[in-house]
Design a protein around this nucleic acid. Structure first.
Lengths: 221, 221
DNA sequence: CTAAAACATTGATCTAGAGCAATGTTTGGG
DNA sequence: CCCAAACATTGCTCTAGATCAATGTTTTAG
């Protein structure tokens, strides 16, 4: 019945280094970079040392420049990203060539295009860095092996999915029934400093309004 | 490490009948009612006989009348529902007293208020039958036990969450960038017969427009 | 079967937010 | 440090969709 061999993959060494660009392998040893990830995961589910080690060996560190793409339309999304510093945005480009931003991933958030990541189909979305960004990333196959083989990781992933779903339900209600000004206020409650951190253009896109309207709404705050 | 005893709960009888109103227990024996559920689950992940049996013993059958509530605001959502016939709607009531419909669950769809179901906090949503509806339902504790104890069920739940998340991302993009007419057309692609099956009032709410606007848009189709 | 209530349509306004043009301000690459 | 290019603001106009009132149609309870 199990498609993934639980015994093997829980030995640890089995997974290490697969799909990791050699340049970044050193990062595996830089323990400190992983603590935000540990905190994040431990917050969802307590972990013992062995599992923590497993995680350390599975994620890799990467720095990206402002505006650098981690995923482009048509590519297959092979990684799950965890933001340490900086931020990413996930968006589609509509027929008129406009960005529609679905999600901002700031510090201590995971980001991936789940559709492509899971199905292996080409992505309709882009993932791009808004700022100079530092992140951890884990290849799809390793991530899925961990989810199958380690119950605590399985629970963490389940919690991530549950939370992501709940969050997007809120966003749907927001669009469904609230004015642009109300949506802006809601965003500012969650990220009070977002207006000074990211260009208005991006925030307008996230809110589903034009930069002109956002500019006028700011006056009303 | 495991919080749920895998050996015990996979014995089957352990779970049967917990939380089940006596009136409905007979349903456990009515094998045929479960086949849509089996099909649904098998579509996500193949199942062996033993697991199927486990499922049969965990879900219960229920008929509800049109307009009957399965969950009201302030209550704790204790069940996950699977629709066999008819349909449900999940909605909030906004400050002006208007329904905001988030989701229609037709035949072969699961429905629950995940937020309340998972966190155990009071629900902000209602779940109500649009029509005379037949459903299967599983109590939260049994559901979570199954997810923990049976790997195939774990995968099924994961797939459900992944799909639910992906679907809601699409709905967000829809609200973010498309006109009411485009949203209506998109809905009709998914459910061509929805306009004749449900009152326009409900569809308007789902689309985030007034019934007046929907009435005018129908003329443009 | 019938009457009341709920629902749907349609016309006449009104308004939030879009689109466009002109102008000012920031940013970043050389 | 500078200048071009990208970004932000503001005024004017336009439009999708809201609101409200009047009328017609369908449901539902008795």
């Amino acid at each position: 019945m199990p498609e993934f061999n639980l015994g093997e993959s829980s030995k640890g060494e089995y997974l290490v280094g697969r799909g990791i660009p050699p340049f970044h392998r050193h990062a595996i040893l830089k323990m400190n970079e992983f603590s935000p990830l540990h905190l994040y995961i431990e917050n969802l589910h307590p972990l013992d040392k062995e599992v923590k080690d497993q995680i350390e060996h599975s994620f890799n560190f990467k720095k990206v420049k402002k505006n650098e793409f981690l995923l482009q339309e048509g590519e297959i999304c092979k990684f799950n990203y965890f933001v340490l510093k900086g931020s990413l945005r996930l968006f589609k480009v509509d027929p008129k060539g406009e960005e529609m931003i679905r999600y901002f991933a700031f510090e201590n958030k995971f980001a991936t295009n789940l559709t492509s990541f899971i199905t292996g189909m080409p992505s309709e979305e882009y993932i791009q860095a808004n700022e100079k960004t530092e992140l951890l990333y884990i290849p799809k196959s390793i991530f899925l092996d961990l989810v199958e083989s380690l119950p605590p990781i399985n629970r963490v992933y389940r919690n991530m999915l549950e939370n992501a779903y709940i969050t997007s339900q809120k966003r749907i209600y927001n669009f469904q029934s609230y004015s642009a000004l109300e949506r802006l206020k809601w965003l500012l409650e969650q990220y009070p400093k977002i207006l000074s951190r990211l260009p208005s253009k991006l925030i307008a896109s996230y809110l589903g309004i034009t930069p002109f309207t956002l500019s006028r709404l700011k006056a009303e705050l």
